[in-house]
Amino acid sequence: MNNMDLEQLNRQNFKSLSDALAMPGKITKIKSVFDSHLLAVANLLFFNEVTYYYSGDEDITLIEAITNPKITTIQEADYILSDVIDTRLILEAKKGDYLNPDFSATLIFKCEDFNSYSHLLSGPGIDGKKEVNLPCNKKFIDVLMKKNSDYPLGVEIFFINSIGELIALSRTTKVEVR
């Protein structure tokens, strides 16, 4: 695969990522890089000015070599990637400060599918309320809502399932467990 292909994939995947974040609860599709959807997102987001933390088994070394981000701790990372959904990562992720709420983390979780739990979403990007299935239980939602309770401070979360579907929760999204 050459550079141009990766850049083209980034263009297409960015549309999926921005659509998912702009309309929380909307399912979009990610095209894989090196047979991995997580690596495709990493390749899209990583560049030499960002930091990341990865907890998982995928071989991220080539993407890291191509994009040149810095590895750091959970507390300092701009992007936190994980093969499993882990509330500890949300608890420890940076959420920005009032002057710079954008100096906060974005978390990307892999999951098998989105069918585990039904939730009701509301907030910017959602026309009224929207019922969606998410791979996270009440405990996870409670932790996330607490993390994002002091808006504009907070984190964004993306879930990627095994077939490359993407769904996002913005820091403005209110989630009610059904």
Binding site: F14, S18, L21, L45, D102, S104, T106, T172
Partner: peptide, 11 residues
């Protein structure tokens, strides 16, 4: 794109 995503997250 990073700035754009953060801007979308913080309207």
């Amino acid at each position: 794109r990073r700035a754009t995503l953060k801007a979308i997250a913080i309207p």
